[in-house]
């Protein structure tokens, strides 16, 4: 079964953007995970684009940090669930729920994420 539910979008009105890390810390083809408040956030620089998603898999809350990123999708390294980085959609078993996705922007050389 594949979930068709899109990932969580920021509630309206938009929350505040918070500095995540310098842009230079996430060059093309890399990723970085940090805890922001109570949430692990994973920022990924792939396919000429920056993505910000939940840092933990929706299946069994395992870290996604070391998962393979290909074609704007990340694969959980523990059990193999895949997620669309743009929408958070769960693409494969064993995950049936999406992961959160966050708005992201770059200001003065810093990546900022809106939780």
């Amino acid at each position: 079964m594949t979930s068709k539910t899109p990932g969580k979008k920021p509630a309206e009105p938009l929350g505040e953007f918070t500095r995540f890390c310098p842009l230079a810390d996430v060059p093309a083809g890399t990723r970085k995970a940090l805890k922001m408040g109570d949430s692990w956030v994973l920022v990924i620089n792939a396919n000429d684009r920056l993505f910000a998603v939940a840092g933990l898999c929706s299946h069994q809350a395992k870290p996604l940090l070391n998962g393979r990123v290909r074609n704007c999708r990340i694969t959980c390294p523990v059990h193999g669930a895949r997620f669309d980085l743009a929408t958070g959609e769960a693409l494969d078993l064993p995950a049936t729920k999406p992961i959160a996705t966050y708005d992201l922007r770059v200001v003065d050389g810093w990546i900022e994420v809106c939780l």
């Binding site: 070391n66 393979r68 694969t75 390294p77 193999g80 895949r82 494969d92 078993l93």
Partner: peptide, 16 residues
């Protein structure tokens, strides 16, 4: 150990 139709990379194969 892994769902059919998936791929990826890992350091171990862990049963869910």
């Amino acid at each position: 150990l892994r769902a059919s139709g998936t791929d990826g990379s890992t350091q171990e194969f862990k049963c869910p």
